[in-house]
Amino acid sequence: MGAGDLSLAVLVAALWGINFSIIKIGLGSFDPFLLSALRFILCALPWIFIFRRPQVRFKYVLSYGLVLGVLQFGFLFVGIREGLSAGLASVVFQLQAFFTICFGAIFLKDQVQFRQLAGMVLAFAGIVTIAKIDGSSNFIAVLLVVAAAASWGVANIIVKKSGATDMLGFTVWSSLVPPLPLLAIALGINGPSHVMTDLRHIDWSGAGAVLYLVYPTTLFGYSVWNYLLRKHTTSLVAPLTLLVPIFGMLSSMVIFHEDLTLRKMIGVVLVIVGLLINMFGFPFRKQTAASVSPQATPR
């Protein structure tokens, strides 16, 4: 992976890391399913009148919208509402990298090299170190975010299988799918009066949270992410999101004053070292990176 693509991946990781704190702020104003529905309504409108419909089979647009919009963000938002802190949610959510690699090996026949397995194991140890259950979380909340991570893994495979080349158009048009199911769930759980109350009492923090979730996180972030998935193998791209919890914890520390303990610092170091091994091998040298260049060659 070249320096340009790597820089894009790091930028997206930073935006997605901050995203977890923004979600928590947004949940102070909206029901989780209503917040997610508003996100995708604004992702789709008015942009479907500007970007052409992606030249892929409709089943990929439909399945990606359902898996990403309804399952991934439904599980994630409810998990954060149920008590998982923004910093820990950003860590647990990165299990998607392991789901993506496993699903890629099963359904796409992607080859996983030993150095990648070693790096992922080390990074996984870092995630376990950081996300060890404590008083700030509970089992149900963690389980919900793990389900969100698995849904993201499935969504990544759908992107690869779709063959889409216009990633922004694919993101915009697939955003048409989630709003109705999400609104139906919100209405079914809370009733029309609760939904209308949330909509009538939107404050600046709620509106700002929705706008951040729409533009930097979804339209820009997922378009770049899908572009990288199309260009590189899943086993090379997916582990880059292990940088997300680092930005997630830093933003949570700044916004919510979440403590940075020694255990979390050790976990961060393990994640970074695991990522470096996954990307560049043993040790971190150009020769090693060059030796695995077929993995990084654009398709």
Rank of each mutant, 00 (worst) to 15 (best):
D166M: 08
N138M: 13
Q94A: 06
Y212K: 00
L42W: 12
N278Q: 12
L71M: 13
V237A: 01
G87Y: 03
P179W: 01
L236K: 08
G188W: 09
I127G: 10
Q94K: 04
D134T: 11
F75K: 01
F114D: 15
L35V: 04
L66C: 09
F73C: 05
P32W: 01
S137D: 13
K109N: 15
F280A: 14
I157G: 06
T217G: 02
G274M: 09
A3Y: 10
A105T: 07
M196V: 14
A207Q: 07
R81C: 09
Q295G: 08
E82G: 00
A164H: 01
V154Q: 01
L122E: 10
F73V: 04
A89N: 04
I22W: 06
V268T: 08
F40L: 13
T165W: 02
L250M: 11
T165M: 14
G169Y: 03
F99V: 09
G119T: 03
P239V: 05
L250D: 01
Y64H: 14
S235A: 15
D110S: 05
I185D: 10
A14G: 10
F40I: 09
L122W: 06
I266T: 10
G79T: 03
L219R: 01
V145T: 02
R52C: 14
W47K: 05
R263E: 15
G104D: 08
F220H: 02
V254Y: 07
A86T: 03
P216T: 02
M167P: 03
F58I: 14
F170C: 15
Q55S: 14
S175I: 00
G153Q: 02
V12A: 07
R57H: 09
I202P: 06
L270D: 13
M249T: 05
Y212Q: 00
D203K: 02
G83V: 10
L15F: 13
A125Q: 10
S85C: 07
Y222G: 05
S293D: 11
T233S: 13
N226W: 03
L242K: 03
S251M: 07
T218N: 07
Y227G: 03
I80T: 00
P178M: 12
N156K: 01
S205Q: 15
M253E: 14
T297L: 12
G26K: 04
A164Q: 05
T288D: 14
A147N: 04
L6N: 03
I140E: 14
V12D: 04
E258W: 05
M196Y: 05
M120H: 01
G188Y: 07
A184P: 09
L84C: 05
D198C: 14
D110Y: 02
V159N: 02
S151N: 03
I272T: 06
L62M: 12
K132V: 15
S162K: 03
Q116G: 11
A9P: 04
T234Y: 02
A184S: 12
P216R: 02
G126D: 12
F114A: 15
S252I: 09
S205G: 11
G17K: 06
G83T: 04
R285N: 14
I277H: 08
L27I: 08
G248I: 09
M120L: 15
V254S: 08
I41D: 08
P239T: 04
L95Q: 07
V56S: 12
S63V: 11
K286D: 15
L34H: 00
A207Y: 01
L68I: 09
G274V: 10
M279F: 12
L213I: 10
P32T: 06
Y222Q: 03
